[in-house]
Design a protein around this nucleic acid. Sequence first.
DNA 1: CGGCATCCTCGTTGATACTG
DNA 2: CAGTATCAACGAGGATGCCG
Lengths: 124, 124
Amino acid sequence: MREKTERVIREWTDSCDAEVSIAVLGGAWKPSILSLLARHGVLRFGELGRLLDNPTARVLTRQLRELEQDGLVVRTVYQQVPPKVEYRLSELGESAGPLVEALTQWGGQYAAQQRAGLTAAPVG
Amino acid sequence: MREKTERVIREWTDSCDAEVSIAVLGGAWKPSILSLLARHGVLRFGELGRLLDNPTARVLTRQLRELEQDGLVVRTVYQQVPPKVEYRLSELGESAGPLVEALTQWGGQYAAQQRAGLTAAPVG
DNA sequence: CGGCATCCTCGTTGATACTG
DNA sequence: CAGTATCAACGAGGATGCCG
């Protein structure tokens, strides 16, 4: 797994398990990547890029590598020209589905409420 | 709410609501702070510091301010000497309880599984 | 097509010292 | 007690360009 994830895991015995989840799921695009893979099953690198908001290849690569190192996604390289690389969820990745869903729901409610609050009583 | 949170909320309409949750809950100590406040009800600044692993005052202050700006905690200042400041969850903060719990559970399972894997087949 | 190498910017974390 | 001010270190995210 990634060094960051490993460090977070090593440094805690107590209640901070939530930080482990955030270390694993907390990167840019990661929840979206997991959601997309859950919905589509298998996706190629370019497909993921288009379904997201076209992050730079460097960034998308990085997120996918981290998810792979943390054991959530499986990367399959087809040795051919032009190259073809497929990504899918591992069992561990699938186990994160409900959690990502919970994050999405609460985040959506929160965002909606904040937007309503801002409209009713603008702060900025 | 914080600029970071606001930006995340502004920049998404679609599936990335999960990133909103992570923007709000993702800071250092934040899940632990929310858990502690959920368990204890009301805590003073110093009590929080001791219950956590004694983060520097600057860091703890920052996390609490962000949680306050994001509407999850309520800060009460007693004008007296010596100073006394109390923190408690807002309704919004309480609504995050199940989510923090879900993060904790998945993170705990993940960490346990990774530790077992590391023991069985050390990587480092 | 699916990357990697390089460079840069910014935010977050944190140590240390000081204050009302 | 509950902070603030200052400074340093680090990593994530991103732009750009090249490659097999």
